[in-house]
Design a protein around this nucleic acid. Sequence first.
DNA 1: GGGGAAGTTTACGTTAACGTAAAGTGGCGG
DNA 2: CCGCCACTTTACGTTAACGTAAACTTCCCC
Lengths: 131, 131
Amino acid sequence: METQKTYTIGELARAFDVTTRTIRFYEDQGLLSPERRGQTRIYSTADRTTLKLILRGKRLGFSLAESRDLIRMYRPTEDNRDQLMALIGKINEKRAQLEQQLTDIRILQGELEDAEARARQAMENLENDHV
Amino acid sequence: METQKTYTIGELARAFDVTTRTIRFYEDQGLLSPERRGQTRIYSTADRTTLKLILRGKRLGFSLAESRDLIRMYRPTEDNRDQLMALIGKINEKRAQLEQQLTDIRILQGELEDAEARARQAMENLENDHV
DNA sequence: GGGGAAGTTTACGTTAACGTAAAGTGGCGG
DNA sequence: CCGCCACTTTACGTTAACGTAAACTTCCCC
């Protein structure tokens, strides 16, 4: 009942469509620290979640350093007042950045919509000329 | 009355907070092609818009190659049917990617909200222990 | 007309995020 | 026992996106 599910590096690689090299690289950069059975890495569900976070960050254009910060922001911390204040500051910086990205995306979506409409129109025109 | 506004490379650099090196690099990569007066580059409002598009792409984590594609997608084209079909396909790929990014951002926003709440809670606890 | 300031080209340097290759270890089915 | 597969470490290679430095023209100002 307390058998926590674990993963090998190959399983995670297949699951998230990355190479094992990539996963080891993330560990090298201090983003992951799986258990070991002898030499072999054993990943917990927490490790799996961390990896998922990193890849989500990638999709949003974050560097690994940024993703590392984000992960640190999220996990519970017992700091002093100043550190907590600094943390809240960082969190709000990220939030502002995400707002900017939302704006950018919405504008781009509109433009792509336009572009598609024009392309379809161009096709219609072709049909007509053709007749 | 037909005096189209133009810009020097330095003006654009200051306006968008990038270096002139960066702007020349984009030209080298085929993303910009400003007029020349002698040696000197003269940028039109269209060039300025293109630069803005590139930087917006950057904020969303796009490579320069992707931004170049996006710019091509947006500007009017007179292609044949197959090319138009391909274009529409690409546009929809990008649209799907943007949807994924929207989802990612919303989840992340929620998590940062949680993180901030926990940080504030931790601060309150400090105050109380302190008393 | 000397000297900044802003423009130019050319070219080598740098960082992030892996790719790729070599060489070795551990389990396991036939 | 052998070969294969998945794992490991070490280390050099690669690409994108610029940074940085050198050496040069052009324009403007006093």
